[in-house]
Design a protein around this nucleic acid. Structure first.
Lengths: 161, 161
DNA sequence: GCTGAAATACAGCGTAT
DNA sequence: ATACGCTGTATTTCAGC
């Protein structure tokens, strides 16, 4: 785990294409960036080894899994001490409704993205898993009307497209 | 494009395993859920066709791409009319720093997750892309200390693990 | 949903630049 | 040091049942 060499334009193009479709074969990828498939394999392996590529994720439609309603919960944890927030974070991550969890600056300590079946389910979740916890001082619930993906992540100064 | 049949326990197990590691081979996946590889391929293909599986995404480390600082921007758009929010959403999605965009209920209309190089970059982004826009009435910036992934998304009532 | 075979892709290695 | 082409192996895919 030593190499943290700068990414060259070929690496960046590979990352851009793989972020478009992570299942692109090395053969196709190689053709698109203009190198040999074996070289392409080497490049991607190196990107994985050096931690630029963290992994491959499956995107699933929450609605099709019976969770059509999503919300963000802004949570104040008081007192905000290590002994309390460790178990809090662990518990939130275990909840089946949780999709993402952030520790933030600002008036709210945590933001939790949840996917639920309906309003009753959301109410149950907030009451049973959040406001009933000693260390949770306040929960603010904001429903998600719609969400969008954004373009591929690239280094600053890289012309998109 | 007709089938929206209920997912059986085998489908759910496949989804759970693929959410753990989207690169699991059909051979391994089949062995783990107890069906033949070809059947497993059929199942996954059907899940893709019917829209349960939306796609395969590459997870990349923003820090390794020169964007170690992340923030959430809470944005009020005034007036909140269709003619204004369409272009706003399109522009935000085009910004290289944007990672995710939500349209919300509550006092803030949009939440934008961004990844930037440093504080100066974040300040520039807020001033040039947000507060300088006519329709943006207010932007509240909250830095992300840390973020966590949560468990796989499964239907309500499914025992996790 | 399974079996088995054909097509394809991957991963390692030797060589050349 | 990086890229390439070749080759054995593993995986994916497609018939037929």
């Amino acid at each position: 785990m030593a190499d943290s060499a700068a990414l060259d334009p070929v690496d960046l193009e590979i990352l851009r294409l793989l972020q478009n479709d992570a299942r692109t074969t090395y053969r196709d990828l190689a053709a698109m960036v203009g190198i040999a498939p074996s070289t392409c394999l080497d490049r991607v392996a190196r990107l994985r080894r050096t931690g630029v590529i963290l992994g491959h994720e499956l995107r699933v439609d929450p609605g099709r899994l019976g969770r059509p309603l999503q919300a963000l919960l802004l949570v104040q944890v008081r007192p905000h001490r290590k002994e309390l927030i460790g178990p809090f974070v662990e518990r939130i991550r275990e909840i089946p409704e949780s999709r993402a969890l952030f520790h933030l600056t600002g008036p709210d300590d945590y933001l939790v993205q949840v996917a639920v079946a309906d309003m009753a389910d959301l109410q149950r979740l907030v009451l049973e898993e959040f406001t009933s916890r000693r260390e949770v001082a306040r929960v603010e619930t904001r429903l998600i009307f719609q969400q969008w993906e954004c373009g591929p992540l690239l280094p600053p100064g890289t012309a998109p497209g």
